[in-house]
């Protein structure tokens, strides 16, 4: 029970921070840099969840984040976002099972690759499912891939730190419970 409580707390904080970051990117970035493409920090968070969570947990969490972002900050229907995330997760997971080492360097390369894949999958899904599909927007997408790669390492370090803090809390809680049980 306690474990699920801490898992929930861990995810709640991640979802909240991602929500705030998305608001920052759509408003603050836009006011200062105009239409210049912003890094997809939220995609880095989603990638982290794909790599460092159990498969079912990861998919449910990224679906929930996708829903929050779509409901608040975009005109994109949630169904397409979920489908894109599912395809992305399938690819990332199958690569991860063959080729993975934990750490910021792997995350950096994975971030660049995932952002590129995200754009490709998004455009393809849009071409198949939408009557007026999304265009290439090549320049904008390339800048987004580079920027997202650049912010991937700080994102990874923050996420890893938060996971460690949560895990410590979880271990402390478990230890306290065991000790209390022993005394009783």
């Amino acid at each position: 029970m306690q474990t699920s409580k801490f898992h929930f707390l861990n995810f709640f904080v991640i979802a909240l921070v991602t929500f705030l970051l998305a608001a920052f990117l759509t408003t603050f970035w836009f006011q200062l840099f105009g239409d210049f493409p912003a890094p997809l920090v939220w995609l880095n968070v989603i990638l982290y969840l794909m790599l460092y969570r159990r498969p079912t947990e990861a998919v449910l969490e990224i679906y929930l984040i996708g829903f929050l972002l779509s409901a608040a900050y975009s005109a994109q229907p949630i169904g397409i976002i979920w489908l894109v995330f599912f395809v992305l997760f399938s690819i990332v997971y199958s690569v991860k099972t063959r080729f993975f080492w934990p750490g910021p360097r792997y995350f950096f390369f994975a971030s660049m690759a995932t952002t590129t894949l995200y754009h490709i999958v998004f455009v393809l899904t849009s071409q198949v499912l939408e009557s007026n599909p999304s265009g290439a927007l090549l320049g904008q997408r390339i800048v987004e891939v580079i920027f997202t790669g650049l912010v991937s390492i700080p994102t990874f370090l923050v996420m890893e730190k938060w996971d460690r803090i949560s895990a410590d809390e979880l271990a402390n809680e478990a230890a306290t419970q065991t000790n209390t049980g022993a005394v009783e």
Binding site: F19, L20, A23, F24, T27, F28, Q31, L32, S70, A72
Partner: peptide, 23 residues
Amino acid sequence: DKPFSMLGSFIQVAFFEFSDGVR
């Protein structure tokens, strides 16, 4: 969608005011 879009809108207003101040 409503609660989340409403929450997002409040946060965006806050960021907008902040960015206005910075500018």
